[in-house]
């Protein structure tokens, strides 16, 4: 699929949900827990489970990026599945915590 900033990604195998912050304009295959994402959380029926190696989890509020830093996804709901693009597991992007200024 072609991802645009603002596109939502919902896991078929766990509670994880992510929001697209940045993405290249190319056809991508996004998986959570190793399984293709779905259009709505209500389509999740619990019959599909995570693939081994894709069960590292996603954490609320964290951002996930690829090696080349072309894609960035923000986790809005935590889950047990890990997010991958074209088979490559995305990495947690470290950010420095700032004091609440407003």
């Amino acid at each position: 699929m072609i991802l645009k900033p603002g596109a939502r990604l919902i896991s078929a195998v766990c509670t994880a949900e992510l929001m697209t912050v940045k993405a290249p304009k190319t056809d991508l295959e996004v998986t959570i827990g190793g399984v293709a994402t779905i259009a709505s959380a209500s389509a999740r029926d619990g019959s599909v489970t995570a693939v081994a190696g894709h069960d590292g989890g996603t954490l609320m509020g964290k951002r996930y990026v690829d090696e080349a830093d072309t894609i960035e996804l923000l986790c809005t709901k935590a889950g047990s599945g890990a997010v991958a693009v074209n088979g490559e597991l995305l990495q947690l992007k470290e950010a420095k915590a700032l004091p609440a200024s407003d």
Binding site: P5, G6, R8, E17, M19, G61, T76, K77
Partner: peptide, 14 residues
């Protein structure tokens, strides 16, 4: 990103 995406993030996360 657009503030409309922010609304969807709020619905998802909170």
């Amino acid at each position: 990103m657009h503030l409309s995406s922010f609304v969807e993030m709020v619905e998802s996360g909170f």
